[in-house]
Design a protein around this nucleic acid. Structure first.
Lengths: 182, 182
DNA sequence: ACAAACTGTTGTAAATACTGAACGCTATTG
DNA sequence: CAATAGCGTTCAGTATTTACAACAGTTTGT
């Protein structure tokens, strides 16, 4: 979360000097220096100007993750998933030990009557899933769908959405969301 | 790309007033007002402070796309998935019509003897999955694992990996990969 | 109707970021 | 050995952003 260090590593990765980047970006070299030393917190406009000289967007800049080469666990037995259940809905997360989680991969079970409630729109990402057992109702935006075994979905997480099981047998769903909000 | 408009829409989405957000964020209301009117370009530190009051990260803030009303297909029936099978392995992709695919969400079937072959290390990204039926062997790096029904996995796509079904019943797998390489 | 509590929008003064011109340093070149 | 060109850092002055406080307008409650 260190803007200075982050900028410096990107700049060096691109093989640019402070002055070179400054020239391309249309700022002075001292600006770059001070930003990298965290002696100032740049304004959005000037950081944007600086990044334009790389070039790189603000999103890219902030989402750049400092790499980590963990030798983490790969396989998780059925009983090793971490339970993040919410109300009646059972949700089990794959990859508990994973550091830089990009996907939230879940096994979800909706007992009869279960409902996620009207989730607020979640700003980022996309999600997909497939129904493994039972039937389930999916509402995305103003549309309502009935999922049956083998059916799947894919939508932007930013749209308001909701899962509901109005039937009398449990529904089992496997889903993936990116980026992970857990 | 308009910071002011962006902040305002998020704030209103959360049902906060300028003063309320200001209080939570530890800044003054005038700061919020001026940022939203684009009469200033806030510093990273103050924008970060403001967003903390929502709360929201800088990445989320900048990656929030304002309008995204793509009326693309949401639900895909079992027979609507597009088949990208490779050799003996059946692979069906969810969300064929989706424009900005971030996840490759697949339903895969490995008949007895099927093998993906030694896949080359696959760019960056991560993948996760869960076994729905049968048994399957997964090799990641130098490690080999046996997946049974309900077991799952999560690893960096950059590690060399391979799936194989040495058993005499078909194996069914649901997987998610990001970013999508299809 | 009036007051109280809220909304967002301004000035002005204080705090912070940016520029331009130094500085010391290392490497390359004649 | 200069001399030149590059590097990143620092300092004083200027430009911009922020806090504080006052403002007008709208809604809530008595």
């Amino acid at each position: 979360m260190d803007v200075g260090v982050r900028l410096q590593s990107i700049r060096k990765l691109k093989g640019l000097s402070q002055r070179e980047l400054a020239k391309r970006a249309g700022v002075t070299n001292s600006t770059i220096s001070m930003i990298e030393k965290n002696s100032v917190s740049p304004s959005i406009s000037s950081l944007k100007k600086v990044l334009a000289g790389i070039p790189m967007s603000l999103v890219e800049f902030f989402s750049l993750d400092v790499e980590q080469d963990s030798n983490t666990q790969v396989v998780y037995k059925a009983n090793e998933l971490i339970d993040i259940s919410d109300g009646a809905v059972t949700m089990k997360l794959v990859g508990k030990a994973h550091p830089s989680r990009a996907i939230a991969f879940l096994s979800e079970t909706y007992p009869p009557g279960a409902d996620t409630g009207n989730e607020m729109l979640n700003h980022e990402g996309e999600e997909a899933g497939m129904l493994i057992e039972g039937r389930l109702e999916l509402v995305v935006g103003s549309e309502s769908y009935i999922l049956e075994k083998g059916d799947s979905y894919y939508f932007e997480s930013s749209k308001p959405h909701r899962f509901r099981n109005p039937y009398d047998e449990p529904a089992k769903l496997i889903s993936a969301t990116t980026p992970a909000n857990f």
